[in-house]
Each structure stands twice: as structure tokens, then as C-alpha cells.
Amino acid sequence: MSPLTITTRYVAIGPVLEITGDLDHYTAPELRTAVESLTLAAGQLLVLDLARLDFCDSSGISALISARNLATEQGAGIALAAVPANTARILGIVGLDRVFPIHDDVAAVTAAGSSDPSRRKKIV
């Protein structure tokens, strides 16, 4: 088990949360807290950098959905960057690869500038 670390930095399009370690039943509340502590402006983009994510279970997926819903409520977008293969597979199986904009890395998200507004539907 790898401890969860969340580091926040800001780029021109909005905050980037670098998520390292295991995102599971025990640590998912930490991601929710980190996202809830952000103030997102309308038109900004919240980027979740998963390059160093070691493990993600259903609670972690739920925390990602909560982050998306919170960003959407504040008029912001969300994008996932550098999604590990095992997590990408899960997102694909449950159809969330069609809900989250997914990019190869943070630089690709920054270059894109914003997420597709048609993907800003709230997931319950």
C-alpha cells in the first residue's frame, strides 16, 4: 500500500492536483477534501494528474466523479492527465472514458486549454 499524497499547483488554466499513491476506500476522502478546498472560477479547468497513481478502487473512482461534479457546479471543467493503464481500463469498462476528458499528460491538457463543454453533465 502506497500512502496518498496530493500536491496542488496552479497553471494558467487552473489548478493541477498531482495525485500520488493509492486512491482507495481509506484515502478517497483526502481527494474530496483537497478538491472541496479549491475555489474554481467559471471557465477554469481542474486537472487531476494521475501519473503517479499506483492504485484506484471504486471509492477512488467515486472521488474522481465527485471532483468532476464539484468543478461543474462551479462552472469549471475537469480533465484527467496521465491515467495509468489499469485505471484507464476501469474508466473504459464503466463508460467514464466518455465522461472525463483524458490526456496523455498535463502539458497536453494545458495545450488543449479547456475541456469539451458537452462533457459537463453532472453524474449522480
Rank of each mutant, 00 (worst) to 15 (best):
L31I: 06
R68K: 12
I19Y: 06
T8K: 15
L64I: 08
I61F: 01
A34F: 03
P3D: 14
S37K: 10
D54R: 09
I19W: 00
L17I: 07
D22K: 01
A41R: 12
L38S: 03
T7P: 10
V16I: 08
Y10W: 13
L38K: 00
S66R: 12
I65S: 01
L17N: 04
E18D: 14
G60K: 00
S62M: 11
I13F: 08
T27F: 03
I65G: 08
G21S: 06
D49H: 07
E30N: 12
N69P: 07
A34M: 06
L70P: 10
I19L: 05
I65K: 00
S37E: 14
S37V: 07
A51S: 12
A51H: 11
L40G: 03
T7V: 13
A12F: 10
V11K: 09
L50H: 01
D22T: 05
Y10I: 12
S58Y: 03
L64V: 06
T5R: 12
T39G: 11
E18Q: 14
P3R: 11
A42I: 11
G43I: 08
V11P: 03
N69H: 09
P29F: 04
L4P: 03
T8Y: 10
T20I: 11
I19N: 04
R32T: 14
L23F: 05
A63C: 01
E18S: 15
S62N: 14
P29C: 01
F55T: 00
T7K: 12
L50P: 02
A41Q: 12
R32Q: 14
L70I: 13
Y10S: 15
S66Q: 15
C56S: 06
A51P: 06
G14A: 02
S59G: 04
F55H: 03
A67R: 01
D49F: 00
T8D: 12
L38W: 08
V16N: 03
V35M: 03
